[in-house]
Amino acid sequence: MKGDACKAIALHVIVIAALFALNFVLPPYHHGVLARVMVLAVFAMGYNLLFGYAGLLSLGHAMFFAAGLYGAGLPMVHFGWGVPGAFAAGLLAGVLLSAVIGLLALRTKGVAFMIVTMMFAQVGYLLVYYFGSWTRGDEGLVIQQQARAIQFGATRLDLTNPVTRYMAALALFAIVLIATLIMVRSSFGRVLVAIRENEERTRMLGYDTFANKLAAMVASGAICAAAGAAYVILFGYVGSTFASIQYSILPLLWVLLGGAATTLGPLVGTVLMFYLIDGSGDLLKIYAPGWNISYLGIVGVALILLVLFFPKGILGTIRDRWARWLP
C-alpha cells in the first residue's frame, strides 16, 4: 500500500513536470492549445469529482463554469476590477451557486437529479440573455488586454503573454490536480466512493450522506468556477455558449473518455477529444467535403461508442487491467 502511494505521487509529479517541460518545446499553435486544454481539464476535474467519485451524474455543470466565467468577467468589464479580485469573485459565485443548487437538487436522485440540474443550467443560460444589456448574450464580451495582468509591487505579470499564460494555466491545473489527489485519498473521498457504490449502506454505517454529497457538489462547483474564472482572465472572452447545454455535456464526455474516477482521466480525455475534433475536422474537409461535419457528429458518435463499448474510459481500463494502484 505504501509503495502504491509513492507510485501515485510520483506519477502526478511527472505529469506536472512534463507539462512544464512542454512549454519550452511545443510549437506556438500547440502551446496555445495546451494552455486552453489545461483550463478545460480543470473544469473536467471538477465534474469528475462529482460524477466519477460521488456517482452523481449532473447535466448542468455549464452553470458552474459560467458562474466563474461571468462572476469574474462582468466585474472586470463593468467595474474595472483587477485580476485577483475578479478571480475571487468568480470562485465565490461558483461556491454560492453550487451550495444553493446542491441544497435543492440533492433532494432528488438518479434521473430526476440529471433533469433538475439540466433545468437549473437552462435557467442560467436564459438569464444570460435576460440580462443581455450587461452580458451581451451570445455576442459576448471581450476583456481588454491591459486589464489581464497582475501587479506584484513593481513587477507586472502580463497574462496575455503566451508563456505567462501557459504557466498560469499550469499553476491552476497543478493546484487542482494535487487538491483532487489529496481529496480522493482522504476519508472524505472514500466516503464519496462508498456513497456511489451503495448510499443506503453508507448511511447505515453512520455517515451523513447528504452533507457529504453537498460538500462534493460545492467542491466540484468551486473547481469548475475556478476554471471558468481562469478561462475569462487568460483568454479574455465571455459568451453565452459557455453556459449552454453543450458545455454541460462536454465535461461528461471528457471524463468518460479519460476514465471516470481517475485523477488524471479528465486531462487525458480533454486532450484527446480536443485533438480528435481538431484533427478530424481537417481530415473530413479533405475526404468528405461538403458534408459539414462539425463537432456535433463526432461528439455524438464518441458518446455512443464510449457508453457501449468502453464505459470505463482509457485510464479506467488501464487501472482494471494493469495498474491497480492508479488513483
Binding site: S294, L296, V299, G300, I304
Partner: peptide, 8 residues
C-alpha cells in the same frame, strides 16, 4: 449521443 448524430 443520438441527439448530436441526428443533428449532424
Amino acid at each position: 449521443g443520438l441527439l448530436y448524430i441526428i443533428q449532424q
